[in-house]
Each structure stands twice: as C-alpha cells, then as structure tokens.
Design a protein around this nucleic acid. Sequence first.
DNA 1: AACGTAAGCAACCGCGGTGCG
DNA 2: TCGCACCGCGGTTGCTTACGT
Length: 235
Amino acid sequence: MKTMKDETRKGPWTEQEDILLINFVNLFGDRRWDFVAKVSGLNRTGKSCRLRWVNYLHPGLKRGKMTPQEERLVLELHARWGNRWSRIARKLPGRTDNEIKNYWRTHTRKKAQERKTAMSPSLSSSNCSSSSNITTVNSPPLPGTGEASFYDTGELGEAVQGGEKGYSMDDIWKDIENTINEPVCDGFSEEGCNFSCPSLASPSWEYSPDTLWSISGEESRVFLPYDDGTMLLTG
DNA sequence: AACGTAAGCAACCGCGGTGCG
DNA sequence: TCGCACCGCGGTTGCTTACGT
C-alpha cells in the first residue's frame, strides 16, 4: 500500500534511474520489486521496475535483430503454444517476452500485408511455400545500410550508435562495473550496505538442450554477479 | 529539404495467480 | 478460509526512428 501518495514517475527511464535500479537489484535481488522500488527512491512502481529490469537491464539480455534461427524458433513455438510469450521467451535465451511479442506483431503485420498484395494481383505467381510460413522471415534483407537500429548493441559488434544519442547499455554496465566495487551505499542508509547480495536474478531462461542453438560466443557476454557485489564480465 | 507513413521498440494497463498473515 | 499485497503475463498504446515520396 503506497502510503506516500507519490507522484510515481512514468515514461522513459533515464540513465540515472537505470543505474540506481541495477544497483539495488544487485543488492536485493530481482524478486521484491515493490521493496526495491521503494527503497531505491525511484518514484516508480515495482511493476515498472521489474519491467525495466526484465526487458532492458537484465545482464543476460541479447540485443539486436533476431537471428534466422530465433525467428524460426519463435514461429515454431508460437504455432505450438500460441501467445504464451513468456513461455516462448524461456526457450530463447536472452530474449524477452516483450521482444518476442513485438517481433511477432510486426512479423504478422508484414505477412498480412504481403498476403494482401499477393492476393490483389490475384495471380498465384506460384505462391511458393505456403506451407513454410517462414519464408518471409528467414532472411531479413538488411542490405547493410543503416540497419543498426538505435538499440542494437549486440549483433553489429558494439554500439554503432554509441555516441551522441544518449547512452548504451554498455556504457551503463561499464559504469556499474566501476561503481559497483565501491560500496553501493551512496544515497542510501547504512542499512543497505549490510545486506549480502542475494545471488542475482535467477535467469528465467531454460538453457535446455533442445534449444536449437547456444548463445554464440560474442553474444554471451554476461555479467556474473559475485557475492561481494562485483561483476565479472565474461565473453 | 520537408512531409507523411511505416516499422520497431519501450512502457503502461488490466487481469489472474500465488503466497502470506 | 478470507482478504490483501505482490508478481507475472498478455494486450495495447505511444513515441522515436527509418524510409519513401
């Protein structure tokens, strides 16, 4: 119950908020979101914090375009499970349900459009492979032009966009890496410092053998939290 | 160069499930 | 057993960027 009738912040997160959230999640784990939200001083709801963490700040996150394998897997699993996005996401290490959902949405939109245009001329034109609905997917054209979206940090090897536009996750994590070694007590009561950092964030992804691929070396860059609050950068 | 449209992404909302007192 | 608070999920919306005219 929010006693303090706070004007909870909404909208896009700032770099400061991100850093704060990361610090506090490292301290308290990624379960007690209401608590984290309250204690961190972020005027955000626990819900909002969780969402930000899960969809954007989580260390294991892969960013950038879906690979053809991933796309295929999404299609496959969606055919099997329907809109169980979180379930599907568990089979795609590093991808979030939100991401998959968004992908699916644009994918279906694209498909619908294609179908429409394919139908209007009404000529079959050997509408090849109606069975393999993957056809539209399996090779996202991307002629190498300015393909790197603002959010890409993964595939094209680091932050093409790096500079002027705000900040990248790499920046943030570098920051964290630097600051995390210092006691994270800044701006928080001494109480915070005495908590042992619970092993962070049980990753919700199932690294099951039946996942069709494993994270490629480059993308498996992961920050491993240590008990003393430091982070190990692998990969 | 300016404008309009489409695509992509992040975030919010509402609801149902679960755990706890 | 009931009520409450919190968490997680799926749907939806709004904003930003990219692209075409």
